[in-house]
């Protein structure tokens, strides 16, 4: 299992994987992101923190090209994507795990797992995925939405791992899940990080991300208002409290 994940380790850690500059995003008439700047280096896990409606999910959806309109710059591994169609952006090696999980009701678990096409070599094999998430193997022929919330979240992560994506956007992976499931998801995410995957993690629970992420961006009203490293966070936890009001 660990070997399989290690195979995904990127060639050059530390180079820029994603650079967002001056990103504005709109849904119809409503302007949801106001000049967001974010940088993610290869192999890094970056967390986006902030209250509901701060623009975290919109930032992920903007990277995937799923908002109505975007302006500014989103460079992925050297390619400007701000005017690209979503299916072409995905082919640059990104896997997206949406907040609502996006498990398809008319597909069974196996079909859900096999749905995203392989976009790069080096993805996890189905056997490795079952080793990471044994629950899925037992429910292979159930309709996708008959799974529990936790199993649906595992399936949503698992299907991305198959594709060979080396950069994963995880939106609230622990939302609404029981503590024991949160732990299991946390372990899986940590293992993926050790395997060298680059990730952006959107979370409400600082407790969950503080043990995983290398760096944190704090968002408010469609802006990035602060950024700090894991060491800075450990030294000064109160700094976040003012933003998040927890």
């Amino acid at each position: 299992m660990a070997d399989a994940v290690m195979k995904m380790a990127p060639a050059a850690a530390g180079e820029t994987r994603l650079k967002i500059e001056g990103l504005n995003a709109y849904y119809g008439e409503s302007h949801v992101l106001h000049g967001v700047d974010i940088e993610v280096r290869r192999g890094e896990v970056v967390a986006l923190l902030g209250r509901n409606g701060a623009g975290k999910t919109s930032t992920l959806r903007s990277i995937m090209g799923l908002v109505g309109r975007r302006t500014g710059s989103i460079v992925l591994g050297g390619t400007e994507t701000v005017a690209m169609a979503p299916h072409r952006i995905a082919r640059l090696g990104i896997g997206y795990v949406p907040e609502e999980r996006g498990i398809f009701a008319s597909l069974n678990v196996q079909e859900n797992l096999m749905l995203p096409p392989v976009i790069r070599p080096g993805g996890m094999s189905v056997a490795d995925i079952f080793a990471l998430f044994p629950n899925l193997k037992e429910r292979l022929y159930s309709p996708g939405t008959k799974l529990s919330g936790g199993e649906q979240q595992m399936l949503a992560i698992a299907r991305i791992l198959r594709t060979g994506a080396d950069f994963i956007l995880l939106d609230e992976p622990t939302e609404g899940l029981a503590p024991v499931i949160v732990q299991q998801i946390g372990q899986a995410v940590r293992r993926l990080k050790e395997g060298g995957l680059t990730m952006i993690l959107v979370e409400q629970s600082i407790h969950f991300v503080s043990t995983i992420a290398d760096r944190f961006y704090v968002m408010e009203d469609g802006h990035v208002v602060d950024s700090l490293t894991a060491a800075e966070l450990a030294a000064d936890r109160d700094r976040l409290v003012t933003y998040l009001g927890v």
């Binding site: 169609a85 979503p86 995905a90 594709t163």
Partner: peptide
């Protein structure tokens, strides 16, 4: 939209 975001 999600299917398209998978690269299809």
């Amino acid at each position: 939209r999600l299917v398209q975001a998978f690269g299809i």
